[in-house]
Design a protein around this nucleic acid. Structure first.
Lengths: 325, 325
DNA sequence: CATCATGATTGACAATTGTCAATCATGCCC
DNA sequence: GGGCATGATTGACAATTGTCAATCATGATG
């Protein structure tokens, strides 16, 4: 992005204050402006990501639960937020941690795919501004036409804005009414290109959808309750980027999936770093399916989920990962 | 590194204060300690890299000079510190900027090679603490036996300490008295292994040595003035990781180079990201040789050097890069 | 068991920073 | 040109933070 003249002075103030450790009045004197302005510039510098203040997320990885989950499911890294709930807003803990982990995982010049969901939206909201260079954020799944508040394109754009990246949205509905139409739309060059570009991602961010009555796919109107029950009877256990997966993580063979426009599951699996975020306990079964399908390399989860996963591990046999000696 | 119990509370305080934006008194209340302790913990968190405050270095890349140098020499990125000299300590500007750029270039899990020199040492000194994960810092060249203050192993260890990395030193002298001895020592498994591990580096950090009477090679006793003059007559134009290079960037064929124990120049060139730092004007000729030899992908330099390089570019023909239409 | 040394913790005060209403510059429109 | 809207800048005060001497634990030692 181009540098406005006013950025120049903000940058200088930030450099002197944060990097060289001068006091605000010293910075003011050196730049020949009032101290109040310095304070103002510094705030802007923080807000725009010219200055980046980040707290290490290591603490949350040192949790014993996190370690055991990593081992049991063969994940590269797991972060579990504390049981106690440090803040007044326990619901915000997972997205906040996830946002920090996500930022740590991005590198300059990388391409990042994001799906959507309440959690991902909350993450975007909690994410601090950072000034990466050459980062691209691509949308992993189609949009929902409804005036639903957590739209995939909004997630993508907001995250792109926060990390100073280029956002690559794609404007197709998530679900169409017919298989045929979906196929035709997928073949459209604009859409095709976008879907293909997902293969080149270095990092993916998504949550897993559950299949409750108040799950995301229902709330956003992609499915009716009846359709959902039918899918569950057919073996659906979770939702990844809008697509139904079975307990073994495979794409469920069903009419619904054929009507969806979204990242190919194989493409998602081909992305080297895949961060999954889960908050509510209802996400446990979908998570296990996602692990089984190899969709996840990095996980941020609540303490409640951590405990359920541990129980699952201890129950022995069950998990697909138990097959991994 | 293992987490001491006391780190836990420091980390929590930092998380609440920096990530959740609570005030110190709120943090104190929540953790049931005095606010004075919170202030203390926060300071420690900053000092240990639990909290990372970094200022974007983009400003220094937006300099017109920087852009032109990038283009002319085909470098990926160039940073030039401002002419004016923002701080009271102009000599510290280049190392400080370089330290920040260097930290931005490191990624978790990467292997970083560092050579040494006054500038590199000053960088280590100006570098803030960061808590990377799985980073290894390897020494690129042999040591100097003399009680010289900027020893290669010190640079390596200090940088490793700052970025929370494992340091891989190697204890061989930089220059030996005979070709034969150097060859034999290079063949020793301990040394061989270390030298080979350089190939696996993701990032290299070094300066280029000049060939003045007060240059590093002289000051540290690697060469006498007479030997240096002889080498210069033979075509030596700069020093990279202890080795003499000619104007075209090739390793000078000379007795001295055969007596040196250091990273193979081809290995250095094979490292994907190669950050070169240069401060004094005497470094211009060595820099041009380094560019010619393809040793540099990223450059941090003083305004004075920037200007000299520009003049060189404008002089037209000269540069090897001029051949790059 | 008393004594001392060491390091963590705190209360109280000083220093620094954040904020906001008031003022100043700038550009636009009539 | 005058009036007006918009946004930048500042002075002055309030809020927050840094510091340090004093106090409190802890554990080692005679």
């Amino acid at each position: 992005m181009a540098v406005r003249a006013t950025d120049q002075i903000i940058h200088k103030a930030a450099w002197l204050y944060y990097t060289h450790g001068l006091r605000q009045d010293e910075v003011a004197r050196r730049l020949e402006i009032s101290r109040a302005s310095v304070a103002l510039y510094l705030r802007k510098a923080r807000e725009n990501g010219i200055v980046n203040i980040s707290t290490s997320t290591h603490l949350f990885r040192q949790d014993v639960t996190a370690r055991r989950i990593e081992d049991a499911f063969g994940l590269e890294a797991v972060w579990i937020v504390g049981r106690e709930g440090l803040t007044a807003d326990p619901a915000g803990e997972v997205p906040t941690l996830a946002a920090n982990v996500f930022l740590e995982m991005i590198g300059n010049g990388e391409r990042v795919g994001v799906a959507w969901g309440r959690t991902v939206y909350a993450m975007a909201d909690a994410m601090s501004y950072a000034d990466f260079e050459g980062v691209t954020v691509v949308q992993l799944c189609g949009n929902l036409g409804a005036p639903y508040s957590y739209r995939p394109d909004q997630c993508t754009m907001e995250i792109a804005r926060r990390v100073n990246a280029k956002g690559l949205n794609f404007y197709a509905p998530l679900v169409l009414s017919s298989d045929r139409l979906a196929r035709e739309l997928r073949a459209e060059p604009v859409i095709r290109e976008q879907l293909d570009s997902i293969d080149a991602c270095d990092l993916a961010l998504f949550s897993v959808g559950s299949l409750d009555a108040d799950s995301h796919v229902i709330k956003c109107g992609a499915l009716t309750l009846d359709e959902l029950s039918a899918l569950k009877r057919n073996g659906a256990r979770g939702v990844i980027a809008g697509q139904m997966i079975a307990a073994d993580g495979a794409l469920l063979s069903c009419d619904y999936n054929r009507r969806v426009i979204s990242a190919d599951l194989a493409s998602i699996r081909a992305i080297p770093k895949r961060l999954v975020v889960a908050q509510e306990e209802a996400k446990v079964a979908p998570l296990l399916a996602a692990f089984a399908g190899g969709f996840c390399t990095h996980l941020v989860a609540s303490a409640a989920i951590g405990e359920r996963l541990l129980e699952h591990i201890e129950a022995g046999t069950g998990g697909p990962a138990a097959a991994k000696p």
